[in-house]
Design a protein around this nucleic acid. Structure first.
Lengths: 206, 206
DNA sequence: TATGATAATGGACACCTTGTCCGGAATTTT
DNA sequence: AAAATTCCGGACAAGGTGTCCATTATCATA
């Protein structure tokens, strides 16, 4: 009686997504063939093409879910902390914590491992989030808003990648502190003569 | 008598590089096949493999030249302006001007068009440059130097991409100014630190 | 639980790409 | 002009792609 999707189809899709994640983590996206995926998922060739047009389609479809999830998470954070009124990076903390929780998924997609497709998809999603976040916080017309959005998104991805690749032991809050420090105050506090010690906000040791 | 390279080999290599650039600008790197390249270059299949192991090898070899060129450009700038002592972004101006001059080449490589290979290669090269540039300008241990390098490189590439994709009419100095503003002072100057309703900024579309 | 509907299977298919191997032709060097 | 080097082009096996189809398995439902 429930107007739901056939279990078989659902199972197939899940198996394919699972296989894709596993293989991407092992070999990266570019090096994957459809053959690899259906072997790993133990799914027939024709079945694969009955669901997706190719591996890129499969990858993209995975982002639909992430997109939804992020949108909801964003709404939740927004409702909870209205303080983002004077903080264009209010989302960053939640983002880094989310990334820490789903580290494997993030590692799979970020830093070239996910290929240009994943990278681009992520950028689009994050750009939407960021654009809305700072819709009312910025002023001044010296720098195009669009540029600021790209700048933030790029910095976030860079930070995430560095975190995973070089200092995976750091806590989300530590990484977040560094990210916010650089984004909000820039490099100025770190240059010039040494008689002006920067306020140490990020506690970190390597 | 001259210990030079056979003209034919040089011609072949040049033709292949030229073809690669042309096709990358037209279709992007990932979508290219060796077949496409040798067709465009009008070079025999076996000849191609006599010179390179594949399209990735061909692409990489092109970066050797760029690497040299950038190193020299960096040295030149350094000698000319010793002022970089208190400016960790002293290189940016020269970089943006260089990018403007060779816009086609840059467009070919940046923003996913060049694929993960090109992206990674560029990051490596730029990282070297940046690392040396700020070898003596930073102080404080709040933020790992390594992270700062990645941060700057990422921001630079983001800026470059935005410039080419959205506002190609801007002059190098204009872009450089925005880049430096964001990098040095961060977002703070653009935030309503006092909860002052942003003056409706005029002329800031997109 | 019977039955029609839907999905999965595996194999076959033509086509493309990859890398490698030749012998002969063309070009360059000496 | 002769010798050395490079290019060519065709052929090759191996592997991936995307599409068909007849058959089988599973599902939804009455």
């Amino acid at each position: 009686m429930p107007r739901e999707i056939d279990r078989r189809a659902a199972r197939t899709r899940k198996a394919l997504h699972q296989a894709l994640m596993t293989l991407m983590l092992r070999k990266g996206y570019e090096a994957l063939s459809v053959q690899d995926i259906i072997d790993e998922a133990d799914i027939g060739r024709s079945t694969f093409y009955a669901h997706y047009t190719g591996k890129e389609d499969l990858l993209r479809s995975g982002f639909q879910m992430l997109r939804q999830e992020l949108k909801e998470a964003q709404s939740a954070v927004r409702a909870e902390a209205e303080a983002s009124h004077d903080d264009p990076l209010g989302f960053s903390t939640a983002m880094f914590e989310h990334a820490a929780r789903y580290a494997d998924h993030y590692r799979t997609m970020i830093g070239g491992r996910g290929g240009a497709v994943a990278e681009n998809e992520i950028r689009l999603i994050l750009s939407e989030v960021v654009r809305q976040e700072l819709s009312s916080t910025l002023h001044g017309d010296a720098i195009p808003r669009d540029f600021v959005v790209q700048f933030i998104v790029g910095a976030f991805l860079t930070t995430l990648n560095w975190w995973f690749e070089r200092k995976p032991k750091l806590s989300p809050s530590q990484v977040d502190a560094m990210f916010r420090s650089l984004m909000l105050d820039g490099l100025s506090p770190m240059i010039g003569d040494e008689r002006r010690p920067a306020d140490h906000r990020a506690a970190s040791r390597d």
